[in-house]
Computed example of a mutant assay.
Amino acid sequence: MYIGEYLLWFGNSIKKETRKKLEMSYSSSDMKLSEVEKDWTKASVSNNPRAIGPYYAYNDRYLEIRGGMFENFRGILTWISLLIFFIPFSSGYYCINHIIMLYCCETAKIAGHIIAIIFYSIVFFPSIYLCFRYFRYVYRLELFTIRHIRVRFNRVTRQVYIQRPKYCGGTVVFKWDHIMPGNFGDSGSDMNGTNMVNLIVFHPYKTGFPIAHSVGIGKNTYKGQDYKDEWEFIRRYMEDGPENLPKPRLSTHLPMPFHGLGGHISPMIHAAQNSKSIVMYLLLIPVFLILLPVYTAGYFISECLCWQPRWPKVIRQAGKKGKPIPKETTLSDYPPDVQKGILESRLEWCVLDEKTGKYVDYGNSD
């Protein structure tokens, strides 16, 4: 579920030595000066602002929407993790079971019990060690972590708060005026037909942070116009307030069995609508009957095994009369080793001046 966020943060925060070992090269994004200079909070991109959601809060002070990419694949990693967890837990169970039987004086099979205890112990201890020492870097992307990434837009403080796990960058605070849409821009790209979430970006050209922070919000969609409609809804809320905007239906943070249904069924419907082959329809039948319930159950299990933490107090109170404004995220908020990796990755966020054909020096280079 948090694979996208983790890879983005990992690529922007690893040290040069680790990057060399993994054979990862630096690749400049080469964004245009006109795009990063533009004030996207003032430019209207749609005449049909829509709250697609899911939204968790909506009032005069702030709105809150679900963040995170690849939510439509949530559940797959859960089943894989549970299958792997089955190895140490089952071996531990049988080991304890044989110890109990041996303790209960079943001396007739004492040799068999001892051999079984040794065998299951050999399986249990290495597998449980591997799960907690190494596999935790995998299962934490979907289990025993934050249930949903949340993005809060506070129109009073004119700030954007992003709540993510620490291994994906942690909770960050940026100015609303520094925001940029990631799925469309002056280049004309609208991500039509890609089944992606709506991406928002905070580029270092504006924020002063050495690297860009990106996060996906809302649901996956194949329609490029959906990105613009929801972006326009949020933009108008932040600039003009909730008046004259459709009030979104609020969702719950709690686990619900139907939460994963929409994200999993939409790609199947899209495939059926765009396919002219009878073979595709025949392939979709077992997917609907077998895989869809499995995916949905995995999504629900993942939600149940995660938790939704509260925002920090300063963010919860932000915008109230007499309360402090949250401090914007800076490089010093991170540990020294992470700071080093971030500074070494800053050259990837170059800005190209289309008029001169040269890179702009905005304090993000050596």
Rank of each mutant, 00 (worst) to 15 (best):
T157E: 15
F144W: 14
E348V: 00
F153W: 06
D333R: 03
P255E: 14
H270Q: 14
F119R: 02
G322A: 12
M280D: 14
G241D: 05
F209S: 02
G170F: 06
G67Q: 03
K358R: 12
L305S: 08
N274M: 14
V138H: 13
Y137S: 10
R155P: 04
K206L: 07
Y227Q: 01
I110Y: 10
F70C: 04
L82A: 01
V197R: 10
H178P: 07
K228V: 11
M256P: 00
K219G: 00
H270P: 03
K320I: 01
D229E: 07
I269L: 14
I76L: 15
F300Y: 15
E328Q: 12
W307Q: 14
K321S: 08
H213E: 03
I87H: 03
K38W: 05
D353K: 03
Y94A: 10
M1D: 09
L130A: 15
W79H: 14
V123N: 03
T330K: 15
F135T: 04
A51C: 01
Y205P: 03
K358C: 01
S25V: 05
G68A: 10
L352M: 13
R346W: 05
Y56N: 05
S29D: 15
N48K: 15
I285Q: 07
A297G: 04
T78R: 04
I96M: 13
R133I: 01
E239S: 07
S189E: 13
N59F: 11
L261T: 05
F144H: 13
